[in-house]
Design a protein around this nucleic acid. Structure first.
Lengths: 133, 133
DNA sequence: AATATATGTTAGATTTTCTTACATGAGATT
DNA sequence: AATCTCATGTAAGAAAATCTAACATATATT
């Protein structure tokens, strides 16, 4: 289980989340209705919250304190997610570059080891060849 | 909130603990009956488990796999708790010793600063006193 | 004044958990 | 072999927790 899975694993019933966040059930459900959080559900439709959900709720609370309305909070979250996607993409690309770099290096080493250099048939080799055999 | 409080905070309903430990409700309740765990309760008597409880349950499971019976597991837990109490005591004592050491140091410094040294009225001071005032 | 937003409250239905009691399979004991 | 003990399964009925939906309301916005 990686960090992402640990943070997003559904674990907590609403009663515990109420305690941890000092929000009412009504507030929590309303924020879900407004799509600021998407807690998991049991088979019986009871909500199950993750650590990530709780963090979000705490942030919602703090932003509401700063008079940001729910639309604003939603937008803030949306932007952060875009940023994070962006970052993930950059990371992926950088990994791809790394891979192709190392691939390139591997090929070059291979060529050198097997004398498949571009210059294998070049003037230079021709020029030097008289010193061999 | 310190580490102890974090590990012992009642958070999880039995359904989640069942998932995390792969134990049945019957098993979990039975282990409680045998006093191997003591989960907290809500006002309405529903069990609430902490991270520490979950760790214990996983250990119970692993020991049962090794054919240790519940009495054995209980004894193992009891011994570990005694050891831990022991350690906590040693730590406390060492802290006390530290405190009395620093107290002693403070007093010595105080004495030196205020010329309350044993030697304040010694020959030596008497000898040097003629060079002053 | 009318509207929108965020939250409170209540009611009835559904889900989850509780306790208690009886059942059972595998080993240990007689 | 019969009996006992231990750990677990299963079922029933009660109680607690959560759900959704609806209506209520205070404050801010238009």
């Amino acid at each position: 289980m990686n960090d992402f899975e640990r943070r997003n694993r559904p674990l907590f019933p609403i009663s515990i989340v109420m305690e941890l966040t000092e929000l009412t059930a009504r507030q929590i459900r309303y924020y879900e209705e407004q799509q600021l959080i998407k807690p998991a559900r049991t088979k019986g439709k009871h909500r199950l919250f993750s650590f990530a959900d709780i963090d979000r709720l705490l942030e919602i609370k703090s932003l509401l304190d700063k008079k940001v309305n729910l639309a604003g909070i939603k937008e803030i979250f949306r932007r952060r997610e875009l940023e994070e996607q962006e970052k993930a993409l950059m990371k992926l690309k950088s990994k791809e570059r790394q891979i192709s770099d190392s691939e390139l290096r591997r090929k070059l080493v291979n060529e050198v080891l097997h004398q498949k250099s571009k210059y294998a048939n070049s003037q230079i080799q021709g020029d030097l060849s008289r010193f061999f055999h």
